[in-house]
């Protein structure tokens, strides 16, 4: 009987130990989750978003992002380049675009953040006609933005914000310069080969995200504002930018820490320093790492359907972007 009691006590003790382990194990998981939760990535509820590069997140977070991208047009069709009425017979080439941006966003409170972004964008022709006809355009800019949370729960996040885009737009217009030299017979100070013009855009933004489940989420951003002319004696223009992106975290489906996001964007004004206006349509596909809330690395393919001055019609651009994000 005494033996049975000892066995029973041992079993109870062991059972209690097992019970302690089983109760401690979930608490360790919860603790781990809390530790992870202190680094707030682009997560809303259960879903970890893999955001499109260079777009504003619909969350208030402290983060740093770096983007490097390049693109090239396809099938550019430009009219024969002429100087002083004389045609220049040369290959057309394409338009190449390169860009770099770095942004830091600092959450002041869970409902307020500010960010600073530096940008460098450039576009130039890859051959004689495209280089002479389209020149070289560069933008250096610093954006300053404020974001205010309107609502955030496990399913929805809605923010609004204000952004100042303070840029310097440099245009090298070879055609205009060459014609000016021919007309006047010499190089004059009135006829500059390149012109740099400061311009400030003020834009209001509203953005929302929705989590369907751990695997899928959707976010959208609408930006509207006023854009100063990027060329001398130009007109003020309205700026409109609408983005819709659908995000899938494959970690929730096949336990692969990869997220894909498909985005479509409609933009009413160019972000590079060309004078033409028009509507830009972009399609993005981002493939990113989703194994960690605190770090995001992604590559993004983009397709753009954009107007180009003096081209016979809208031009297709294909590009790629490397996107790195650090959340704090």
């Amino acid at each position: 009987m005494r033996t049975y009691i000892w066995v029973l006590l041992l079993a109870l003790t062991a059972g209690r130990g097992v019970a302690q382990e089983t109760t401690e194990a979930p608490s360790a998981v919860v603790q781990g989750a809390e530790t992870r939760a202190t680094i707030q990535g682009p997560r809303l509820g259960d879903h970890l978003f893999s955001p499109i590069a260079t777009t504003t997140l619909p969350f208030i977070r402290t983060m740093t992002t770096l983007n490097v991208g390049a693109g090239i047009s396809s099938g550019l069709d430009l009219p024969l380049f002429t100087i002083g009425g004389q045609p220049v017979y040369a290959s057309v080439g394409e338009l190449a675009v390169v860009g770099f941006s770095a942004r830091h966003e600092q959450a002041i409170k869970p409902w307020l953040s500010v960010y600073l972004e530096a940008q460098l964008l450039g576009r130039l022709g890859t051959s004689v006609t495209s280089l002479l006809g389209q020149g070289v355009n560069t933008v250096t800019g610093v954006d300053l933005g404020w974001k205010i949370r309107i609502h955030e729960d496990q399913r929805w996040s809605v923010i609004t914000g204000l952004e100042l885009q303070n840029g310097s737009y440099t245009t090298i217009d070879i055609q205009r310069w060459a014609e000016g030299v021919i007309d006047s017979g010499k190089v004059t100070s009135d006829n500059q080969l390149f012109d740099t013009k400061p311009a400030l855009n003020v834009a209001w933004m509203v953005s929302a995200a929705h989590t369907f489940n751990r695997a899928m989420g959707l976010y959208a951003t609408l930006t509207a504002g006023v854009e100063e002319p990027k060329v001398r004696n130009g007109e003020y223009a309205l700026l409109l930018d609408a983005l819709l992106a659908f995000s899938v975290d494959w970690n929730a489906i096949v336990e692969l820490p990869v997220g894909t996001t498909l985005g479509v964007e409609y933009r009413e004004n160019p972000t590079i320093a060309d004078s033409e206006d028009g509507s830009y349509k972009n399609v993005y596909l981002r493939i990113g790492y989703t194994g960690d809330d605190g770090f995001g690395l992604g590559v993004q393919a983009s397709y753009q359907y954009a107007p180009v001055a003096s081209a016979s019609g809208p031009v297709q651009f294909f590009g790629g972007t490397l996107d790195m994000r650090f959340y704090f």
Binding site: L164, P198, L200, V202, E228, R232, N233
Partner: peptide, 20 residues
């Protein structure tokens, strides 16, 4: 950060390509 282009309307008319 100032938001307004401070060149006056009078100056805008003086310059061929007004500064900002």
């Amino acid at each position: 950060q100032g938001l307004i282009d401070l060149i006056s309307d009078d100056q805008q008319q003086t310059f061929h390509q007004a500064p900002v």
